[in-house]
Each structure stands twice: as C-alpha cells, then as structure tokens.
C-alpha cells in the first residue's frame, strides 16, 4: 500500500472528497440523460413535469432511426468479420515471420491509431467523392475497418505471443498437416484474443462518428450520423432515448466483459 489510508490523517478525507466529486462528474451526464429520456418535457426541463415513454415510441415509430440502426449493425458486423480476416494473417506474420522490417510492419498496422481521425476523414472523403461512393456500404466498411484493424492486430498479436509454438509443432510431428495444426490447435488456443479483437472491432465501428459523417449521404446514415445531424438541429428528447439505449448496451457489454475476465482468471 502506498501511504496507507489511515496513516494519511486528514489528507484522506480530501482524497475521498475528490474521488466522490470526480465520480459524480463522470456519472452526471450519463444519469441525467437516462432521467430526461423518461421526462415529458419537450424542452428537457429538470426535474421533468411528468414521466412518459413517448420519446421511445417516437424513436421506434420513425423508420429513419430504425434504418440507421440497421445500417450501423450491418456495417459493424461486416467490419468485425473483415477485421479478423485481415488481422489474423497480419498477426501471424508479425509474430512468426522471420523477415527484416517486421517491427516496421507492426508499427504500420497500428499507425491508424495515431493519425487524428479528422485527417483520415477528409483524405477518405476526397477518395470516395472521386469514386462516387458516398453513402455506400463499401465506404462505411472501408473507413471503419482502418480504425478497427489495429485493435484486432493488437489483440491477436498479444495472445499469439503468449502461445507456445512447440505445441503446434508437436501436433505436426504427430501427423497433422500445418494447416490442420493451426486450425485445430493454435486457433482454439488464441480464441480469446480473436474474440476480443472482434468485439473491439465491432464497437469501434458502432461508435464511429467522424469518418461516418464524411462517408454518409442524406439517404444512408449510421446511427451516430443520424444522432449527429439531429443534434445539429435541436436537442430533442428522442436523442436522450437513443442515448439511454446505448448506455444500457454499454453496461451490458461491461458486465459480459467482467464475467469473461472472472472466468479466465479461474
């Protein structure tokens, strides 16, 4: 323990106060939105004059909101699959490869994390305008995949580095072909890395705003783009309803992740 709490004297109450205030600060907008989404005031009065579910009804009655959710879901699943399909061979090359420039290759795959998203956004915007692809499924998937790929590469590289290659060699000595050994021994052993890479890739795509704004057309939007364009016009409580659904989703994912971590720890 660093400077144990009871040895700190009065200082510890200062620390408690700061932690309490910070938690309140961090939770404030999250809790606030959840409350407002059930409030009856169009102008987001707080405390609300009454309680209602009408914003959720408006949300689920509007085909444009539903369409944007569907686009987000489809793009997300596609990005997830492609991110693993491209990330897996890349991770194998980085960990197993014996060629010069391996470290540079690793850095290159992770480089999209460093470039500010707005720069990627306008560079891709120029490209898809030239190709006439704005608002297309391909544009969303390609853009999101750039940001998702580093996550799957990092996750798979980490678990592959922790896997003892002699187990795979043992399978080959016992008569398996190289491909069989990888498919039946190595891949199951690194499945958690693949799984978390897939999950991160989906979430990156599902939450992505900036690239999507530039890829979208008025006809085709992902959920964050729909939220963005609505937010720029007014602060309707329907956004509070969408946000609350997204917060519930976040909590669900966090619980699943905590559960998985506990299972791995055992």
């Amino acid at each position: 323990m660093i400077l144990t709490l009871n040895r700190m004297g009065r200082g510890r109450f200062v620390l408690y106060a700061i932690a309490g205030a910070t938690s309140a600060f961090l939770l404030l907008p999250v809790v606030f939105i959840a409350f407002l989404s059930f409030g009856s005031s169009q102008w987001l009065q707080f405390p609300p004059p009454g309680w209602t579910l009408k914003w959720y009804e408006v949300l689920f009655a509007d085909p444009r909101w539903l369409a944007s959710m569907l686009v987000s879901l489809k793009v997300g699943l596609c990005v997830m699959a492609l991110s693993i399909a491209l990330g897996l061979p890349a991770a194998f090359a980085i960990v197993r490869g014996r060629f010069p420039g391996r470290a540079a290759l690793h850095a290159f795959f992770i480089s999209p994390m460093i470039v500010p998203v707005i720069i990627l956004a306008i560079a891709l915007y120029a490209l898809i305008l030239k190709l006439g692809l704005n608002g297309s499924f391909l544009a969303f998937v390609a853009a999101h995949l750039i940001l998702a790929l580093p996550f799957s590469v990092i996750c798979i590289v980490n678990s592959l580095e922790g896997f003892d290659i002699s187990v795979e060699k043992a399978a080959i000595i016992c008569g398996a072909t190289r491909l069989q050994a990888i498919r039946r021994v190595t891949l199951p052993a690194i499945r958690l890395g693949i799984l978390s890479g897939a999950l991160f890739s989906f979430l990156v795509s599902w939450d992505e705003v900036v690239l999507s704004i530039f890829m979208a057309s008025p006809g085709t939007q992902t959920l964050p783009v729909k939220m963005w364009t609505t937010l720029r016009q007014d602060l309707t409580p329907v956004i509070a309803a969408v946000s609350t659904l997204l917060i519930v989703m976040t909590i669900a994912v966090m619980l699943v992740a905590a559960f998985l971590r506990r299972r791995i720890a055992r």
Binding site: L26, P29, V209, M227, I239, S243
Partner: peptide
Amino acid sequence: AILLSMWTNLLARTYGWMV
C-alpha cells in the same frame, strides 16, 4: 464509474453536456 463514462457513446455524453 470511470469505465462506464469512458465507454458510453461519445455523442450521448456530449448531448448530456449540451443539455
């Protein structure tokens, strides 16, 4: 509390502050 705020959709959080 830290992770919940970090993982909540960016637009949802920004909307909260706008309101």
